[in-house]
Amino acid sequence: MTAAALAGRGARRAGRRRLLPELTGWGFVLPATVVIVGLSLFPAAWALLLSLRDGDLLTGGDYVGLQNYRDLLGDADLRAAAGHTLVYTVLFVPGSVVLGLGLALALNLKIRLIGFYRTCFFVPYVVSAAATGILANFVFDPDFGIVNAGLKALGLPAMGFLQDLDQAMLTLVLISLWGGVGMPAVVYLAALQDIPRELTEAARVDGGAQRHVLRHVVLPQLRPATVFLLIWQTITALQLFDLVYTTTKGQPLDSTTVIVFYLYRQAFQLFHSGYGAAIAYVLFAVTLAVSGLTLWRGTK
């Protein structure tokens, strides 16, 4: 056998040895990947087909094409739900990001028991929104709630909170901020610890005040984290459901009915599953557009 043939055989063997670890890794990952992708793609495709029919969850119904999507344009209740969702998103997303940044700056300080404080602020985030909603019902109960008890002790009038038409949505935002601010705080804290110390020290040596260092050095370094959090929190806000379900059920007078809760009511209470699927796909398109726009603006 010639030297060239031996060299070629050696190269092939070396290539197979390099490929073996990758094939082994795919062997472990592939089954789970197939299951996850299958459980994601099949429901999405089924929901798309369902949105083109007028059936319920029990029968297939008749094919109506894009009629469900055309009906969305004239649905006043859907427009109201979209308005409530917009109000919630406008209040929750900037509020959670700003509060998360402030907490992260505080939790980045070197003080005693800092690990305990970090854990305390993150624990509400890992608690399910359903549990948070059940707890909020007791805390903000107009008659027996802890908050109104404190207001009465201070000589202040009791408030309706979740049962008041003007206060219900604001109360939901406050509950969401309490439960959701841990995520931005942790992300910002990790980003702060990745900022090279030389940058901030150089800015201070050059005479920069603390607020100038924060504005011109720290915040620009946090821009990727901010873009990620804006997208993440926007998606979370647009998908609000479980907190509404466990607290107000969309009341009073549908003032807290958001898009996903309205979708749930159409699909699972009124059995207009085709119409509900159409709402879900429109919401998906809106979420994708908003996320893409935020990413595009954040990377410019």
Score class of each variant (00 low, 15 high):
241 F>P: 01
213 V>K: 06
7 A>P: 00
121 F>C: 07
199 L>A: 04
6 L>E: 13
134 I>M: 13
15 G>E: 12
245 Y>N: 15
103 L>G: 11
112 R>V: 12
129 A>R: 04
287 T>S: 10
104 A>D: 06
180 G>T: 04
97 V>S: 00
269 Q>I: 10
276 G>L: 10
146 I>L: 15
263 L>D: 10
12 R>C: 04
211 R>D: 03
119 T>I: 03
138 F>R: 10
86 L>C: 06
141 D>F: 01
86 L>A: 15
225 A>F: 08
257 T>K: 13
201 E>V: 13
279 I>G: 04
6 L>K: 15
61 G>L: 11
162 L>R: 10
6 L>R: 15
227 V>N: 05
298 G>D: 08
253 L>V: 14
76 A>S: 15
34 V>G: 11
208 G>S: 14
206 D>G: 06
61 G>S: 13
76 A>G: 09
160 G>P: 00
57 L>E: 08
169 M>N: 01
82 A>N: 05
17 R>K: 12
126 V>F: 06
81 A>K: 06
232 W>H: 12
176 S>H: 00
254 D>R: 14
243 L>Y: 11
20 L>P: 00
171 T>E: 05
41 L>D: 02
233 Q>D: 13
255 S>E: 12
283 L>N: 06
133 G>Q: 09
85 T>W: 04
18 R>L: 12
253 L>T: 10
88 Y>T: 09
231 I>G: 08
145 G>M: 05
293 L>T: 02
5 A>E: 13
300 K>V: 12
97 V>K: 01
147 V>D: 02
4 A>W: 04
30 L>M: 12
108 N>I: 02
168 A>Y: 09
40 S>G: 05
147 V>Q: 04
104 A>V: 07
206 D>Q: 04
26 W>Y: 14
119 T>N: 09
149 A>V: 06
115 G>K: 04
